[in-house]
Simulated scan of single mutants.
Amino acid sequence: MNYPVERQAPAAAPARIGQGTAVEQSRAVAEVQAAIVVAQQVPRDINAAISEMRQSCQQMFLAERAFFRYSRGSGNITGASVHLARELARCWGNIQYGLVEMRRDDEYAQSEMQAFAWDVEKNSRNSSTFIVPHKRDQKGGPKQLTDMRDIYENNANNGARRVREAIFAILPPWFVEEAKQICTKTLAEGGGKPLPQRIADAIRAFEGIGITQDRIETKLGRPSGKWTEHDVAQLLVAFQSIQRGEVTADEEFPLPRVTVDEIKQQATTPAAAAPAASDEQGEQGWPEAAAPGSGARR
């Protein structure tokens, strides 16, 4: 059955093109042609690309940013990040990629974006055009964005994921998989630091963002003394994801639930009597490091 389609008037073409626009159009055409010629004259050296990829993935700075992690439903979604995709594109060579905001519609509060990746040497191109609503998901429901900076950051964050997938679509799968394996191994080795030191650094880092050691141990299901290299590597991925805002601390490390019986038990348990003050306390002084939240003042 055929349905009537509402016809829309075609967008009006500009009456004239300025000199700057004409120059930019000519420059873009010449740049594409030059890229193809250079890629054919100087083809990539696959062995050199593999060697450079392996060297990059052995660096802790890249390995720490090579993976993302966020919560969805009752589980976690993990994968290679856009940072790894961009580095692999650089190592592979003769690749162009990017993100273009084709149109911003303030009336409908959305932007039309295009992400692409192009292997100039093989003439293999992957692109996707998508709509990004000017909204941000949050627990209470989507929030409408009106600030220009918020809209820009929202578009960039949504576009980065499409750019990542476009790059991975044109790279050889074996090249990407080997890179992920090397990055995982680099995280597990911890840059040559002993495991106890890496465990202590991880606990200290999480305490800096308000996550206690008990919550981490509950998440992993074992005390810190039994953590493995894999556990520390996964904690590092989770820490980086929290820092980037991909997942919240409460989603990654849920707070323990308090039952009704525990609340009743706390209400019926008498409070411990406070010790009587004495003159000797003023002579002895407070401990060097008072416990957080104890109310002690130096």
Rank of each mutant, 00 (worst) to 15 (best):
A11S: 10
V260H: 07
G159I: 08
L99C: 09
Q266W: 10
R162D: 01
W286D: 13
R27H: 11
R215C: 06
P223N: 10
P133Q: 09
N94L: 01
K219R: 03
R164V: 02
Q19E: 10
E252A: 15
Q33R: 03
E6P: 06
T248N: 07
P292L: 04
N157E: 02
E251Q: 14
Q25R: 15
H134I: 03
R136M: 05
L236S: 12
L220V: 02
G190S: 13
D261N: 09
K185M: 11
A66V: 15
E52G: 07
I151G: 07
P194F: 08
P275T: 03
A179G: 07
P10H: 12
A271Q: 12
G190N: 14
V232K: 09
P142E: 08
S278T: 08
S124I: 10
L255Y: 03
A290W: 09
D105R: 08
E112I: 11
R298N: 00
L99Y: 05
V5K: 09
I36M: 09
A48T: 08
D279V: 00
P172M: 01
S71Q: 15
A271C: 11
N155V: 02
I211N: 10
T212N: 15
A22M: 12
N157Y: 05
A179V: 06
P4R: 10
V32Y: 05
A200Y: 02
R297W: 01
I167P: 01
I170G: 00
H230I: 00
A202W: 05
N94E: 12
A166R: 09
A169I: 07
W286F: 06
A30R: 12
R125D: 00
Q284V: 00
Y3W: 04
Y108A: 14
A166Q: 04
G98Y: 11
C91G: 04
M1P: 09
A274H: 09
G225I: 11
N47A: 15
D45K: 03
D147R: 05
D147T: 06
E177N: 13
F168V: 05
T21A: 13
A274T: 10
Q265A: 13
A28F: 05
A200Q: 14
V260W: 06
Q96F: 01
D261P: 03
T212W: 02
Q243A: 11
T21D: 13
T146N: 14
H83V: 01
A188Y: 04
I211C: 06
A267M: 14
P172S: 13
E207C: 01
A273H: 10
R298H: 04
V5R: 12
V260S: 02
Q265C: 07
E52M: 10
Q266C: 11
A35Y: 03
P223W: 05
A22D: 11
Y152D: 05
R72W: 05
S81W: 01
W118C: 00
Y152V: 00
A272H: 09
G159S: 11
N157W: 01
T212E: 15
G98Q: 14
G208W: 00
R161N: 03
A166E: 02
E31I: 07
F168D: 02
N157A: 12
Y97H: 07
W227T: 03
Y108R: 14
R136S: 14
I203C: 03
L99H: 12
Q8E: 14
S111K: 10
S111M: 05
G75D: 13
R86Y: 04
G225T: 15
A202R: 05
A160W: 00
I170D: 00
W118P: 00
T259N: 09
A290F: 02
N47L: 10
V176C: 01
L145H: 10
F168W: 01
